[in-house]
Nucleic acid binder design. Sequence first.
DNA 1: TCTGGGGTCCTAGGACCC
DNA 2: TCTGGGGTCCTAGGACCC
Length: 427
Amino acid sequence: MFWYTDVGSDLFMVKPIIFHIDVNSAYLSWEAAYQLDRGSPLDLRTIPSVIGGNEKSRHGIVLAKSIPSKKFNIQTGETLFSARSKCPNLVVVPPRYNLYMKCSKAMVDLLRGYSPTIQRYSIDEVFIDFTGSLNNTRPVDLAFEIKERIKNELGFTVNIGIGSNKLLAKMASEFEKPDKIHTLFPDDIPSKMWPLPVSELFMVGSATKRKLHSRGIMTIGELAKCDPKYIHSWLKSHGLLIWNYANGVENSVVRNESPPIKGLGNSTTMPSDIIDSRTAQMVLLSLIENVSIRLRESKKCAQVISVSLKNSDFVSYSHQRKLQTPTDSTNLFYKQAKDLFDEMWKGEPLRHLGVHFSHLCSNDFFQLSMFQEQSEKQRALDKTIDVLRTKYGNDSVVRSCFLESGLRPLMGGVLEEEDYPMMSSLL
DNA sequence: TCTGGGGTCCTAGGACCC
DNA sequence: TCTGGGGTCCTAGGACCC
């Protein structure tokens, strides 16, 4: 569990020190800080409250919850209907994704002052590797300084987990919330991690929890003490992964750069079920427009397109196709998507449609010119429209079929939001 | 007024090839 | 008729994370 670094003629033992920084109830904290900044007398964090989607458009689930709302057993992901039935006075606030991205960036900018080695794990989670760079500073002292600075300068609290690898740091940051620092080193595993329910282990979700419970494995410690060969033969590679995690074994590096994107997609739940293929096709086109813009922005082509749908019974299925050649053409994707949809759809009412591109490759011109069947005219058109939309907004160029349709011409992703005054503390 | 959206990775089974 | 087996590619579905 230790690294040995050869410095000059001396052999130093360097203890790995990884921080995991996790914003407490991120969306809700950010919204609360924003509202206080705008002069609201109420702090959402102190009352039962949630960030929740729009129920009228069938996006009504809990996206984040305050700590007081946890006392009502409100769960992230459950319906607002259900959450309100548990807590009738629950305050529900709609999400503001632009604000969250700004808050996330402000935190990362602050953290960059401490280390160049920062991994942004999600919008509200960051890993930092302080191995060998702390000199005589105690890790908890540094964590305290960081935590206080985020609280005082940005207006929200974080948990910081400190461990000898990313898994232990992440597990540590989950311990007691909010505004807390915890350590979890190999010696602490039996006392701090093994007594926990197995479902609290990273990568043990509901399905694996069910399987483990069915064979009497209830705690992380019980999993840790199993024979790894048994777990491996039973749960395959995922079993071995969680067995290693249960024993605190994990050795991935804190990486600065995000790995290359493997695939990208958009999907949307419609305000009401789709019952005709014409509407479905327009939604697919709208989704494809959005994903292909992102694809071209990232200078990629895709060779596999997948169309997925969820019907009114919440049954999902998907259909995918590998193209002869990779492409980034909106029209070519749309042609494929229509075929895939027609081959798959059984005619039942649909609540959700999705489009996903994968098998990405570079859109390097030399490669494309070899075997791309799309005409140069098509490429130029896509490019021109991208430029216009970047310059004048996504509404500046709209396919005529959308004009009287009542459908948005670019669906998927987070909703476009109007601009609003930013928090003074983030300026 | 009941159940989001964007990702990654893995596995099973069939087709196909040698 | 008692019917190889290993490897790769493809598709569909499911697991996990935030």
